[in-house]
Write a protein that binds this DNA or RNA. Structure first.
Lengths: 183, 183
DNA sequence: CGAGAAAGCTATTGGCCACTCACTAACTTT
DNA sequence: AAAGTTAGTGAGTGGCCAATAGCTTTCTCG
């Protein structure tokens, strides 16, 4: 397998592991095991652990961006909104790790900034802005709509991270089309 | 100093340290140093590191709950909403670590649940429900209002964690009264 | 004062983990 | 077939960290 292909599978494995246990809670060995490769070899493919985390973070935001882009393609206004909400629900149901990874990314950026490392945050913010713009465009460049949509998304992320089961009253005010299934 | 008073200062120090570096990124020695006490002594005050994190998490949610309760006291409807939004802004400005701790708490619960430990999540969910009820009551038991308020709160947490400076376009749709100062 | 309890410390240990080094095996090119 | 490159490994290493054991100091109260 070529180095590039290996890097690709490392990124996928890293998303799974980092989503579950966070940056500091994930050992490079856990990632290597999931890839099916020796742990030292990761350091031939990436300069260090941070680089793996960054690659996983970026991939995750790009994927989410793509989900919104393709869901809203050709639609506008309320139709685009519901299409994106539905797509998000589907993402949550099929790929909850992406969402957990996003949370891990947030706290990792906060920690990095606190430690004086701004490069990581810079990169993540750029990707997040892309996401913001995608939503903004799809919702007819209405700032209020965009903000509310993303706000609901963040609430959903939070409630899911905290493990509130579908049916709990905290879900009662969330758009049906974006709620986790099962309620 | 009595053990109870020490525990109190440990909780405060723990909030600062865990907020900055997360559960796995924070050493018990960092907490002990901040308290001004030897590292092993922490384990006389708390059974283990997890218990310290749990205490810090609960404290943090209780404090936020109290902020909303006292801000909305005697008010209702839009007045209560703006009072709470303003109080949240003040909390953010004066005590950003509380907010970072909340994010850390979220991902810690997610990790604990994934690892099969549901006790921690149970406790945090109970405290979060208290918070939900406080907001719900203050906003006249309007589910939609409550959800939107909390959703905006979560968006603000996320954007602050990611380090978006005041003035960035991602803030443009956030209620003025809840935005970070400086814009 | 004296004794017990509570507060607090030093020293240590066993385990984990990011990262390095030096090597092998297979494939490619000349 | 010689020379070189690329994928990959096994065996460490130094450092950190949660938790324990056992000791000293300080307070309290009869």
């Amino acid at each position: 397998m070529s180095a590039e292909e290996r890097r690709e599978s490392v990124v996928r494995a890293a998303i799974t592991e980092f989503a579950r246990s966070g940056y500091n809670g994930t050992s490079t060995e856990a990632i290597a095991r999931r890839v099916g490769v020796s742990q030292p070899y990761l350091f031939r493919l990436f300069p260090n652990k941070e680089a793996i985390f960054l690659a996983a973070s970026r991939r995750c935001l790009e994927d989410t961006n793509r989900v919104f882009e393709s869901a809203s393609e050709g639609l506008e206004g309320d139709e685009a909104l519901h299409a994106m909400a539905g797509a998000y629900q589907k993402l949550i149901a099929e790929d909850p790790e992406k969402l957990h990874m996003q949370m891990q990314m947030c706290v990792a950026v906060a920690s990095a900034e606190a430690a004086g490392d701004h490069a990581f945050g810079e990169s993540v913010r750029a990707d997040w802005l892309d996401l913001w713009d995608t939503v903004h465009l799809a919702l007819g460049a209405d700032v209020k709509e965009t903000t509310t949509f993303l706000a609901y998304g963040m609430l959903i992320n939070t409630l899911l991270s905290l493990g509130f089961p579908p049916g709990n009253r905290v879900w009662s005010g969330v758009y049906d089309s974006a709620r986790p299934a099962g309620d």
